[in-house]
Design a protein around this nucleic acid. Structure first.
Lengths: 332, 332
DNA sequence: TTGTAAGCGTTATCAT
DNA sequence: ATGATAACGCTTACAA
């Protein structure tokens, strides 16, 4: 038994497939009584539109690809989750690819999605990605692009990022307000816009408080837990009494380092991380962190994509707010 | 500029589309020199097979749907990640849906995937799901089914589950071996096979050690952190000196409860959780947990699906091993 | 308001 | 080993 087609409905009702097609796709040139009969019969026969045939004919799909470094990271998982909610609401399917932080895999994913004839691609780049030529190569004119979180300049389409500057600014100011005097920074890769903006937010907060910006206590490429630990060894030696970190894992390393050195947190040493990973509220002392609202970022990115697809816009830049979640590690 | 089709290649080479199609799909009835020329020209023109047209013609897709309660949970994220690796290697695309633990959403997801004409569905049921009729309703005869982790009996297709019995048995035995004398259990919903088997593993370990099974210190429906805390209050009052938990979050609640009550972990009180969530190695004391190898479960499920699709099998039951990761919370 | 007819790109069948 | 032809199910000018 094969699936019901519009032809089956047409035959059953003594009309032609065209009429059925029109009725089903909301074309206004269909008599109301005819439409009603068709809809009824369709339900009766359990009709489901053959998406492939429909797309083949229309030359577009209702599939959107999402490319992320890793899906099993909390932040990206939540972004995808938010995006998925909006897309499925709007009748789009989502195909997800991972790059494992590798440019090669990013290229491969783009190729797969192009083959899948996706209508659009939502992407957050791998850490190895610095330019966007491979994107232009892979996707045609017609494939819409929304970059989120880790973005590259000079590409068409829309961009959705956190207000990284403000998040870092607020976090740093919070440390200052809590009386910390010499605040080091664990920052990421400075050629990534996102990390650069966080650094700038940190620097601005210091400046606004009339505190000096000391490059000796700004540690670049500090992303992982181990990096955080090592850099904090240096920070402590350099007389720091607090750390602003642009990531939670490196902040965790900082926390472990401080405790190991016999410092009390938050009494002797303050720490604020970024991303508000689940574990930040599970470690002790509980860690303050900048929440990036990943779910909201996913929702906004998906909405931006839908606007792109509908031609409502050619491209926009959207800023998602952040919220500083203050916990024990920085509050005294 | 529209995409290259087999017709373009055919015209360029003075052959017919049929020949090009055959060459491209590995049909043996093509002269080697012809095939070589076609492959060369295809690469030259940047030809990519139009998946929709191909699928429409063949009447099958190469899309597999994956339905999980939540994608932003570590366990499921890793399962998906593992499955995705195998599927994309085998040329399948993956569409992911979430149920948010709701039966309604599970039904909706099945409908969406059916409309998408997926070749197969990989599913781990919502906590509200107790029977499988909606599955039989939604998917046709031809859609293959692989259930993983949270499974329901009486459905066609394959099943991939952890060796839950053994995992619980090993965890409990580990506590016994470390000299704990009265071991309580935090278990989940007993009408879910998975939790039932874990309970049985716990019970068997006690029996094999000649220890009594006391129903008073077995706490059902204890899944969340808060539940774990509350149940452990009772367990301590009932004289327990250890807890086996069938989840990590409830185990965390147990840990917090024990510490709050002034008990030293592991000296006075032992704890083992299940799932080996990242945070288990971040809390202090670090928590022992049964690792379920979610990535491997994803890989195996995907392989099982591919075997189902190829007709190699009609259905199988696969057991994924578990590994007890012993950390401070249970080792003295 | 409805019907007719063509075609989206591919593949399977039959013929050569 | 290759070509001709039809068909997968749907949409959309165009005609009526």
């Amino acid at each position: 038994m094969s699936a019901t087609t519009i032809r089956d409905i047409a035959v059953a009702l003594g009309v032609t497939p065209s009429t059925v097609s029109r009725a089903l796709s909301g074309n206004p040139y269909v008599k109301e009584s005819t439409r009603a009969a068709i809809l009824k019969k369709a339900r009766e026969l359990g009709y489901e539109r053959n998406v492939m045939a429909s797309n083949l004919r229309k030359g577009t799909t209702n599939i959107v690809g999402i490319i992320v470094p890793r899906i099993n990271r909390e932040f990206f998982g939540n972004v995808i989750s938010g995006a998925e909610a909006v897309f499925s609401e709007a009748g789009y399917s989502v195909v997800i690819c991972q790059t494992h932080e590798r440019l090669e895999d990013e290229k491969a994913a783009l190729k797969v999605l192009a083959g899948e004839q996706v209508a659009g691609i939502m992407i957050s780049h791998s850490s190895e990605t610095v330019s966007g030529e491979h994107i232009l190569d892979a996707i045609g004119e017609s494939v819409k692009l929304v970059q989120f979180d880790r973005v590259i300049e000079g590409l068409p389409g829309s961009i959705v990022i956190n207000d990284d500057f403000k998040g870092a600014y607020t976090a740093t100011k919070h440390l200052i307000d809590n009386g910390y005097k010499r605040i080091g920074a664990l920052v990421g890769f400075m050629d990534t816009i996102l990390f650069k903006r966080r650094y700038e937010g940190y620097a601005a907060a210091l400046a606004d408080a009339g505190m000096p910006l000391d490059p000796d206590i700004v540690y670049e490429n500090t992303i992982l837990r181990e990096n955080g630990y090592e850099s904090t060894v240096k920070a402590i030696a350099a007389g720091c009494d607090a750390i602003y970190s642009s990531g939670d894992f490196s902040a965790l390393g900082a926390l472990e380092c401080a405790l190991k050195h016999g410092l009390k947190v938050p009494e002797d040493f303050g720490i604020v991380g970024t991303a508000n990973e689940t574990f930040t509220s599970l470690v002790s002392p509980r860690m303050s962190s900048v929440d990036q609202h990943p779910f909201e970022m996913g929702r906004s990115s998906a909405s931006a994509m839908i606007r792109l697809l509908s031609g409502e816009t050619q491209g926009e830049e959207i800023l998602i707010g952040t919220t500083l979640v203050t916990r024990q590690s920085s509050t005294r």
